[in-house]
Design a protein around this nucleic acid. Structure first.
Length: 241
DNA sequence: CAGGTC
DNA sequence: CCTGG
């Protein structure tokens, strides 16, 4: 499948897939390979031309949220703050993705207090351990049922203290005390308070989930780095950046 | 200590 | 607090 981007609403595939929003993509040369919703997907970008397999055209547009006019957000928010006005140009093509809520919830819970390589390793091992095998030796993201079935072996995934959280979340989804479809219908404030009621999910993670799975663009995940940069940008002794 | 949370 | 760079 082939898709032609516009300069005004640009997508930089590499920038977006390396940004720490998604953890299941790998680059081989100029080919990006990842697993999205039980399917192996590949993407190659050449300027404004993007070719892909595994997605339908509609799924691709949804996944990278290409219908969102990102330049509108840039103009409405960034241009009014001198300290960050240069960033849209610097990170042109960095899109806010629209990922699956369940996968996003577990992924960002696992992402707490550790590094991107470890996050990728945890998700890869978890998928290999109990995800459904799909094409080419790849594994789907495991369903909550499959996670529970493998809970004795979860220690091989090196999740550390996050292991008990993931088991609890899987159990709560299966028994219905976490209702993903209801969360998808909530506004930002309600979604945050619902997500924050889950063990292992705090302020930062709930905002990541709201931004990367629920299209709540007002979410603003504050991690250590963001906090540092915001403090510097608005401190009186212009150390920025 | 690291892209937090309890 | 688990784990890894």
């Amino acid at each position: 499948m082939k898709y032609i981007l516009t300069p005004k609403n640009f997508l930089d595939v590499a920038l977006t897939l390396e940004s720490g929003q998604a953890f299941r993509w790998q680059r081989h040369g100029d080919i990006w390979t990842g697993v999205v919703k039980n399917k192996v997907c590949r993407i190659v970008q050449d300027g404004l031309t993007v070719r892909f397999t595994g997605f339908t055209r509609e799924e691709f547009i949804e996944y990278f949220d290409l219908r969102l006019d990102i330049s509108e957000i840039y103009e409405n928010t960034f241009s009014t703050h001198a300290e960050i006005r240069h960033l849209p140009q610097k990170y042109n093509g960095l899109r806010i993705m629209h990922q699956d809520l369940y996968e996003c919830m577990l992924s960002f819970m696992l992402a707490t207090n550790t590094s991107i390589p470890h996050i990728k390793s945890m998700i890869a091992k978890l998928s290999e351990l109990c995800g459904e095998k799909i094409a080419g030796g790849y594994y789907a993201f495991p369903t909550p049922e499959r996670i529970l079935k493998s809970r004795e072996k979860l220690c091989t995934c090196k999740l550390g203290y996050r292991e008990r959280y993931i088991v609890e979340i899987a159990r709560r989804i299966v028994d219905g005390s976490i209702e993903l479809e209801k969360i998808k219908c909530m506004d930002y404030e309600h979604a945050v308070s619902e997500l924050r009621g889950v063990n292992g999910i705090g302020n930062k993670v709930s905002d990541c989930i709201c931004l990367f799975a629920l299209k709540h663009y007002e979410a603003f995940p504050i991690d250590r780095h963001i906090l540092d940069r915001v403090c510097r940008a608005y401190s009186s002794d212009n150390g920025f950046p």
